[in-house]
C-alpha cells in the first residue's frame, strides 16, 4: 500500500493521473504561462530599447543641435527611431508645412496635434500586450483553483466508494489537483510582477514624451518669432 502511494506521487505521474478537466486546465495554464513569458521577454527588450533611445535622443536634442538636421536624421531612420524621435519628426514636419506669415495660433495647434497623434500611437504600441499580462496575472490563479476544486471533488467522490476511508485514498487525488493551483500561481506571479514593472516603465516614458511635446512646441513657437530662419526650411 505505502509503496504504491509513494510511487504515484512523482510529479509526472500526478499530472498523468489527473482527470481530463484537470488536465485541460493544466494545459491551458501552461499555454498561458508560455505566452505570458513570451510577452514578458518581448516587452523587456522593447522597453529597454525604448528607454535607451529616448535617453540618447533627449541628450542630442538638448545639446542644442540644429533642428533641421535632427529632422533629417529622424526622417531617414524612421524604422529604427525611438518614439521620442518620431514624435519630434511628426511635429516638425507639420510645422514646416506652414510657411512664414501665417498666423501662429493654428500652426502651433496643428503641430501639437500631430505630435499628440504620434504620441498616442506610440503609447499604444508600448502598452500592447500589457493587458494580456494583467489578465493572466489575475485570472490564472482562479483557473488553477478551478482545476484543484474539480480534482478534489473527484478525489472525494472516489472516496465515497471506498468502505474504509484512509488518507492514502484521497492523498494522490488531492496532490494531483493541487498541481493545478501551483501552475496557476506559477503563471500568475511573474505576469503580475512584469505587469507592474512595465506599467510603471511605460508611465514614466509617457510623462517624458508629454513634457517633450510641450517643450518642442515652445521651441518651435520661438522660431516663428524669427521668420528669417524659417526661410531655410522647406
Amino acid at each position: 500500500m505505502s509503496k504504491t502511494i509513494t510511487q504515484d506521487l512523482s510529479f509526472l505521474h500526478l499530472i498523468g493521473g489527473a482527470s481530463l478537466p484537470v488536465q485541460l486546465v493544466m494545459l491551458l495554464l501552461l499555454l498561458a504561462s508560455l505566452v505570458s513569458w513570451w510577452f514578458i521577454f518581448r516587452k523587456l527588450f522593447t522597453l529597454r530599447q525604448e528607454i535607451k533611445q529616448t535617453d540618447e535622443f533627449e541628450s542630442v536634442f538638448w545639446r542644442g543641435s540644429d533642428l533641421n538636421a535632427l529632422y533629417q536624421r529622424a526622417a531617414s531612420a524612421r524604422h529604427v527611431a525611438g518614439s521620442m524621435e518620431r514624435i519630434f519628426e511628426a511635429g516638425f514636419r507639420e510645422f514646416t508645412k506652414y510657411q512664414s506669415g501665417v498666423d501662429i495660433g493654428p500652426v502651433m495647434d496643428s503641430t501639437r496635434g500631430a505630435m499628440r497623434a504620434v504620441y498616442q500611437r506610440e503609447m499604444d504600441r508600448l502598452e500592447s500586450h500589457l493587458s494580456f499580462l494583467a489578465t493572466v496575472g489575475s485570472v490564472s490563479p482562479y483557473v488553477g483553483l478551478f482545476g484543484t476544486v474539480w480534482g478534489i471533488m473527484n478525489a472525494f467522490r472516489e472516496l465515497s466508494n471506498v468502505g474504509q476511508a484512509t488518507i492514502a485514498h484521497v492523498a494522490p487525488g488531492i496532490a494531483e489537483a493541487l498541481i493545478a493551483t501551483a501552475m496557476g500561481l506559477f503563471a500568475a506571479i511573474p505576469a503580475v510582477i512584469a505587469y507592474n514593472r512595465y506599467a510603471s516603465d511605460t508611465a514614466q516614458l509617457a510623462t517624458r514624451y508629454e513634457s517633450f511635446i510641450e517643450e518642442v512646441s515652445n521651441v518651435l513657437q520661438r522660431r516663428v518669432a524669427k521668420p528669417r530662419d524659417m526661410a531655410n526650411f522647406s
Binding site: L30, S33, L34, V35, W37, W38, F39, I40, F41, R42, L44, F45, T46, Q49, R78, H79, V80, A81, R86, E89, A90, R93, E94, S110, A114, A117, V118, R121, R125, F186
Partner: peptide, 28 residues
Amino acid sequence: MVRLPGNKSEPGKLRAAFFALLVHVVFL
C-alpha cells in the same frame, strides 16, 4: 496629414520566445 510612421519592427521576438521556453524547461 501625418503619414503613419512605419511599423517599427519589434526587437527580439524569437529571442523572447526562446527565453520563454527556456524558463519553462528549466522550471520543469
